[in-house]
């Protein structure tokens, strides 16, 4: 099974603001890395507090949501404005090769790392060749 079907990105637009009620929502940049025992999802979510991250897995969809209070100053005079602040949200399609019960997450310096272990049946196996 090709691993790319294990995790697919759900949104093609990256870092574009979408109106969601009154808050702005951004799709975090992501790295998807395959290791022997599973997949690593590394997401840039600057400004998010570890307690404000929601990770949900349902029906093969992995959703990562980070709540961020907008930091825009209302009455300040802006000299340069290169990014906006708001929530982070991104959805991934996870194939059946992932052991969803064992997904682990950590957050450090505004980077969220998710470890998605492969279920036993999908791990590489060494097959011994028997001589005659």
């Amino acid at each position: 099974m090709a691993t790319e079907t294990l995790v697919r990105q759900g949104q093609s637009e990256v870092r574009r603001a979408e109106p969601a009620r009154t808050r702005r929502v951004y799709a975090p940049l992501v790295d998807i890395i395959e290791q022997k025992d599973g997949l690593l999802l590394v997401l840039d979510m600057p400004g998010v507090e570890p307690g404000d991250i929601d990770i949900e897995y349902e029906n093969g969809l992995l959703t990562v949501h980070g709540k961020v209070e907008p930091r825009e100053q209302e009455d300040a005079c802006y000299l340069r404005c290169e990014y906006g602040t708001g929530d982070f949200h991104r959805t991934f399609t996870v194939g059946e090769g992932i052991d969803a019960d064992k997904i682990e997450a950590e957050c450090k310096n505004g980077v969220v790392t998710l470890h998605l272990p492969k279920s036993e049946a999908f791990r590489p196996r060494r097959i011994e060749v028997k001589g005659e």
Binding site: D44, A76, C77, Y78, L79, R80, C81, G110
Partner: peptide
């Protein structure tokens, strides 16, 4: 970068995750 000012200070904010 975002840069803004008020009467007494300039403020610069940068997103540097990781």
């Amino acid at each position: 970068l975002n840069v803004w000012e008020d009467r007494d200070n300039y403020y610069a904010e940068a997103e540097v995750p990781g």
